Simulated assay, not measured.
Amino acid sequence: MISVTEARAILEENIPLGPIKKAPLQKALELVVAEPLRSPMAVPSFDNSAMDGYAIAWDETQTHWELSDEVTAGDGKMHMLEKGKACRIFTGAPVPQGADTVIPQEWVTKDGNSITFDIAQFQKGQHIRLKGAQTKLGDPILDKGQFISPGAIGLLASVGIAEVPVYAPPSVGIIITGNELKNLGEPLDFGQIYNANGPVLEVYLRKLGIKEIQQYEAKDEPELVQAAIDKALANHDIILLSGGISVGDYDYVKAGLEKARVRQLFYKIRQRPGKPLYVGKKANKAVFALPGNPSSVITCFNQYVKPSLLQWMGHSHPWKTSETLPLASPINRKPGLTFFLKAKVEKGQVHILPGQESFNLIAFGAANCFAEVPEEVEQLAVGDQIAIYYW
């Protein structure tokens, strides 16, 4: 049995970066850039007006300007401004050659085909967006390892980038084991329970931006568990199993993984909940065999699967604590195991919630994080700092 710190270090060392692929821009949201990106063009690609108004060539001695032309946004023609004249122009329209300033329309008095304004209120060059003001050809725009936000999507679109090199999210197979499980919508017989782990694992994966997800079900029979393991390994990058990993008479997962030639990285961690966690590898595929209790599943996913998936997808510092905050109530317990407690951060304090048993999900209705009590810690007082991990 190993410590939480050892388990994290083993995973950090063994989980590879995912393959690099070109993702369509609209599907790259919240993925991670795999190669540095430079602008393939200048933006703006031409001098354009920042206002609706009138384009002029600056001349402090002139008092009246005769209108000679009009330019609208999207006008594909290069207009020439005649000396001493003004051109009606609209926001985003190309600035005519010879013009160097735009006067906003609200400052202008129009009389027939001529305009007047107080030139003292302005400066030469005002209200023109110059070519390359945002980015010049070849300027760096996104670094390798950068998270692609909605704003980054807009930036990439503005320079005409339609595909982005990203670390491809893994394909994930979920194997739910157990004779006692029923799917949602089915009536329960005596002794049966609903499958809570499948839905929570799937939505957690989707929250991380993983879309290739397949669920398998296997009754507690060696042949059925083996068939599900073999099929999942053949079709997915990451395999998550729920249940069947302890040492009971009907726990066949570990033997099935050994038969499938999965190399064990570790089995069992000094923690509560989720002590009988198994992690293994086969080539570049990673296998996480989670305990069956729902609270253990959610805990182990949050602490080990989630950061492993983020590491695969190129995220920076996936193993980092979300933050440390003061406790709202004391903790007293026997040392020797790391505890991950269902908790709620409220008004800057960490509130430990009732219902900490591994079978008990009631606290998850209010919880927004886990609080970690290291294995050597016996007591924590009100106000002591505690590490937390948000969902």
Rank of each mutant, 00 (worst) to 15 (best):
L310Y: 06
K219C: 01
V279C: 15
M78T: 03
P294K: 15
K136M: 10
P276S: 11
L17N: 08
K21M: 14
K231I: 05
G178Y: 03
W58Q: 06
C87W: 01
I386C: 07
T116I: 06
N14P: 01
P16E: 11
A196Y: 13
V166Y: 05
W58V: 03
G18P: 06
K144P: 02
K83C: 00
F370Y: 15
P294L: 15
I386V: 14
N332P: 00
S308E: 01
M313V: 02
Q134V: 11
F266S: 03
G256N: 03
D189E: 15
F147G: 00
S49G: 03
K22D: 15
A93F: 10
P24Q: 11
R333S: 03
A283D: 13
E221K: 13
Y278N: 03
D52H: 08
T135H: 15
S322I: 02
L241G: 06
E375D: 12
A86R: 07
N197W: 12
F359V: 14
Q134P: 00
Q271S: 13
P170N: 12
D111I: 10
N284Y: 07
I153L: 14
Q215M: 14
D75A: 12
I269C: 04
I128D: 05
L142H: 07
P222S: 01
I331P: 00
A234D: 14
G138L: 09
T91P: 09
Q192I: 04
S246M: 10
D69L: 09
G191W: 15
L290Y: 03
I2F: 11
G336H: 09
E66V: 13
E186D: 08
A42T: 07
E378T: 13
S316R: 11
Q379C: 08
L11W: 06
G98W: 11
G112W: 08
S39E: 08
E217H: 15
I245L: 07
N302C: 05
A234P: 01
I161L: 13
G355H: 12
L67R: 08
N197K: 06
K182C: 14
S295G: 15
H79A: 09
T101G: 02
G18V: 12
C87N: 00
Q215C: 13
I210C: 11
A57C: 07
I56C: 01
C369N: 04
I56T: 02
H317G: 00
R270P: 01
V102F: 06
I174F: 08
L155Q: 03
K281S: 14
A28D: 05
F340C: 05
L130S: 02
D220T: 01
E217K: 15
Y267S: 13
Q214D: 07
L29R: 08
L142V: 13
V345W: 03
A50W: 01
F117N: 01
E12D: 14
